[in-house]
Design a protein around this nucleic acid. Structure first.
Lengths: 346, 346
DNA sequence: TTGAAAGCGCTACCAC
DNA sequence: GTGGTAGCGCTTTCAA
């Protein structure tokens, strides 16, 4: 009867170390040793305890463990937007690296919202994560203030702050210049840039480089800013472009997902790419190999970003305090089928 | 001097309730009340405490809190594969719902690996999550054994077990039949199915329905199983198909991402879709609207899956124990431009 | 090789 | 309104 009640209690309330200890006739210390693979346990004892753990379906309470140990083996990753394969790719690589090194990963999406970003950071601090990788476009200095005295290693992407954090960034300007110069060399003189309406630090670089490079050639340039982002934005931008009377011979998209929409809209309007109009993207997402035609783009090395981020976090955690380092990644041009020689004259 | 040491200690070791209490000249109880928005605190006290919390950059230790409360406001979501937009879409919707209801979300990817799935489940149990949504193709009954006496609400996708868990599944067979019948009605008689080599429960349904429906029409059918999945698998399958001599007039892909590769390979080989060959996918991912031509597919209502999952978890958590319910979602055919009347005879 | 006991930081109950 | 204090389940000395 009593035993039965005990069983029920166990069923409801989670088995704990003490329950296992009692059932195995040892102390909690011993069970703890078994759980953590401590050598100093007699083989027979270990075996008995393991049996009981299995029978009782014991699962260590990770909160209790983390509370004692002061931190958890979890890496917090916070990204802006999971719709964009860019962020997803960085995360996936980070997850793989973390897993291979015995860490779990906690993914948060800020949805480009600074308030949610701050909330996310707070939560990660509250969970005493082993490190935070903030791969977001909307970082602000005051959000990082939160992290100040916490001792939690942090690495940012594309955000240079005063406080000397490790930062990884891509030389977007250079990538954009390469792309524009390449198109220029193909004879293109009038180009359009399609950029999502909401300005983010990282897209600003690209926009500026686009305009500057075009200006340096005294070539007419126009920026279209659809209200939507992603492929839908690309579609809208094409409509806008065609109505605008700006007779572009090449369209550069702020990212590849936008280019997908541009290609689609052009196909529907029976405008041949690249014969009548060249199209290029930015990021080099995998999908760019499968668009029709395949997409000329600028490669942003997302695996490398993840690897650098992970390494930086590990070093910080070990106390190899080389704070304030900045890693600059050089993008490179990927020429595929969506761009070609300009068929039209000046 | 001593104060300075204390400051340093605080900087390193994380500020806790007691630190705030001391600095504000109150007890931990009061600080706790402030943190948790308890009404019974004098306004002036509250303000003073809040000031100190801010100054000291206090962040509650969530592990300690969860330890006391017995569980965390975190929903564990475990999916097979983040490469596949299907899973990502379900997760995204789940995350949105969770967030709107004051939950955080913990995402785990099993990578189609049963061992990793089990590990993931263990970790979620260890973290005493408020619920688990297992949206995986590789679930096994013994993995769920782990969850047995834990009292953690669980919901599965596409996995009917003996133990009477809530399960959500899509009537894939019906969707596939609809698709095949539709193509048949267009005059197609010889069809190919492209399915990733590794059989999963959910793809098995589709394969079977494809073969059965074709058989019922006494129509020649062939299944191609590339070694790769995703778009690359689609490309490989087309090559295999063309070499095989099986003269299909329509290709059905096990999912939309595969179809993307099929469309690409056909475009490169100058085979017109749908004039020469019809192509269809399965899932209705967003990208299907942007392929060229846009993709005929079967809609699997991923938002609905997420919503049902979330609701089920909430009900379980509240003890509205309607265990063992199974929700069956009906897919529907989405006809777009990649399929058309069969131009070839017999 | 094993056990006892002191916390980890927090919540919640009970006093005042 | 506020403070004291007993745990939550675990790790980790220190003794035995």
């Amino acid at each position: 009867m009593w035993e039965r009640l005990q069983t029920i209690a166990v069923m409801l309330d989670h088995v704990k170390l003490l329950d296992v200890a009692k059932a195995a006739g040892v102390s909690v210390s011993t069970v703890s040793r078994v759980v953590n693979g401590d050598e100093n346990v007699r083989a027979s004892t270990r075996e008995r305890v393991e049996k009981v753990m299995e029978r009782l379906r014991y699962h260590p309470n990770l909160h209790a463990r983390s509370l004692v140990e002061g931190s958890s083996r979890i890496l917090g990753v916070i990204v802006s937007n999971l719709d964009n394969p860019f962020f997803l790719d960085v995360y996936r690589r980070l997850e793989t690296l973390a897993y291979a090194n015995g860490f779990e990963t906690l993914l948060l999406a800020s949805h480009y919202d600074a308030a949610r970003l701050r909330e996310g950071i707070r939560s990660l601090i509250g969970q005493r994560v082993a490190g935070i990788a903030a791969i977001v476009s909307e970082m602000q200095d005051d959000v990082l203030d939160e992290l100040d005295g916490t001792g939690i290693p942090v690495v940012c992407y594309d955000f240079t702050s005063q406080r000397g954090l490790t930062n990884i960034r891509s030389n977007y300007g250079k990538g954009m210049r390469q792309l524009v110069e390449y198109l220029y060399s193909l004879g293109h003189r009038r180009m359009a840039l399609v950029a999502y309406r909401i300005a983010l630090g990282s897209t600003e670089d690209r926009r500026r480089a686009f305009l500057e490079t075009m200006a340096s050639h005294k070539a007419p340039a126009h920026v279209f800013s659809p209200a939507a982002d992603g492929p839908q934005g690309g579609r809208e931008a094409v409509a806008e472009l065609l109505e605008s009377g700006f007779d572009a011979t090449a369209i550069i998209c702020i990212n590849d997902v936008t280019a997908v929409g541009v290609l689609k809209e052009l196909a529907e309007r029976r405008i041949a790419v690249p014969r009548e109009l060249s199209v290029a993207g930015f990021d080099n997402i995998q999908l760019g190999q499968y668009t029709i035609p395949s997409l000329t783009t600028v490669n942003v090395p997302r695996d490398r970003i993840a690897e650098l981020a992970f390494e930086a976090l590990r070093k910080h955690a070990r106390g190899d305090t080389e704070r304030g380092r900045e890693f600059v990644l050089e993008p490179d041009l990927i020429v595929r089928g969506s761009t070609g020689i300009c068929a039209r004259k000046g």
